[in-house]
Design a protein around this nucleic acid. Sequence first.
DNA 1: GCTTGAACCTCCCGCCGCGGGAGGTCGTAG
DNA 2: CTACGACCTCCCGCGGCGGGAGGTTCAAGC
Lengths: 236, 236
Amino acid sequence: MTVRALYHYDEIGLLSASERTPAGHRRYTERDLRRLYRVRALRALGLSLEEIAGVLDGAADDPESMRDLLTAQLRRLDEHAELIGTLRQRIRGLLGQTGGSSVPDPDRLMTTLELMSVFETYFTEEQRERLAERRNALGGEGVEAARREWAGLVEEGLRLVETGVPAQDERARDLVRRWDALAGGFHPDGPEGEGTKAAARRMWRDNSAEIGRSLPWPAERMAGLVAYLEQARQAG
Amino acid sequence: MTVRALYHYDEIGLLSASERTPAGHRRYTERDLRRLYRVRALRALGLSLEEIAGVLDGAADDPESMRDLLTAQLRRLDEHAELIGTLRQRIRGLLGQTGGSSVPDPDRLMTTLELMSVFETYFTEEQRERLAERRNALGGEGVEAARREWAGLVEEGLRLVETGVPAQDERARDLVRRWDALAGGFHPDGPEGEGTKAAARRMWRDNSAEIGRSLPWPAERMAGLVAYLEQARQAG
DNA sequence: GCTTGAACCTCCCGCCGCGGGAGGTCGTAG
DNA sequence: CTACGACCTCCCGCGGCGGGAGGTTCAAGC
């Protein structure tokens, strides 16, 4: 304990010495001291000074208030712990992303960071939760398999663009169908799925350059591919 | 995002719009926007604005700074999570203490709170850790057994006091020996044990009234017993 | 052209739990 | 009587904005 804290408790009326010496020095009585003990203990449990004041002054009126406050605090701590857990996972994911890779690649890390924010801009929180559920359902190796399959589709699409195959060609339209089917696995079923799919398309359209830079293909070729697929999709 | 946050970032020099319209309105360029994305993503990972500014501006100089910062943040989150874990356990302990009991007994809860603080006053943090280790080593049922045995010793001691057996009597001295042996099980081995034992005795002596109130015996009888045992201990 | 409502601007106070410093008074030991 | 510490009051500071006051600017509708 520091004196400053005691002064502070005095200022806000949480705990003031009930006596003073003639010179104005604070004299804490036995009762004051016991109140201080309670304050300190409750502080150590993470309660705010306001809550502590409330429960210490109102405890006589409502003997249950103490338990209520503690259970509420327990819930808050649970939520906080969960938040910290997700943050830890995210950071570990980011660190692991280039962990065993050949290059340190801080640029890729930066781009991933930008995409996190973009992602949050285009999907609502609820949509993100649904998507996370689906990803969990697919499992780690499921996602990895889809990633590889998708890489194949990208290569195929880039070849189509390069060889000048028109977007109306059946090969392009077939590619779009397989592309969308693959992507569909990541979206929730039912009408919500339409919402996330639409949001994903908007995100791709507006940020293909940004997203492209996080991928192993040149960004401008990816942008071209996205536009090409959009055309093919319009063509049915 | 709120505009206020943007103004704030501008104020502290973290992110300012590189252009302004003739009217003075901020115009964020593409580059500004990308910087904003990074700021938001790093903020969402729990980093401070100062750290973010440091890593965004210094990333060119030191490509590893980003990884360093993230690993440091991971450690901080780990510590934070551990702290939250102990707090949760403590609160659950407090709530469970009178959970299945007959009376709500908020008074007992209050006293326990006071004792938490007293406990921290008499033992250093290191000593508390050692004591916790011992308690864990004893296990839940071990502690419970000791508690019951100790209750028997208290009853025995109270009878001795009541029947006027002098503290020098062999029965009193024997009781002290068994009492100290039982308590010894909770103290660490070696010289540190002496430290915790001495601290525990000081705590009992100064706060027997306080501690007594948390026990199922009348506080003043407990205080009398403590003084009696002190005498008996002096008598060898 | 005029009005209206929204969006934007700057400036400043507030939160929470104290830390720390300035500048003064009080208490006690030598 | 003189140090030197302990105590007092008053006030500014942090981090990350929120929110309000009071003024300007912009785009749309009449």
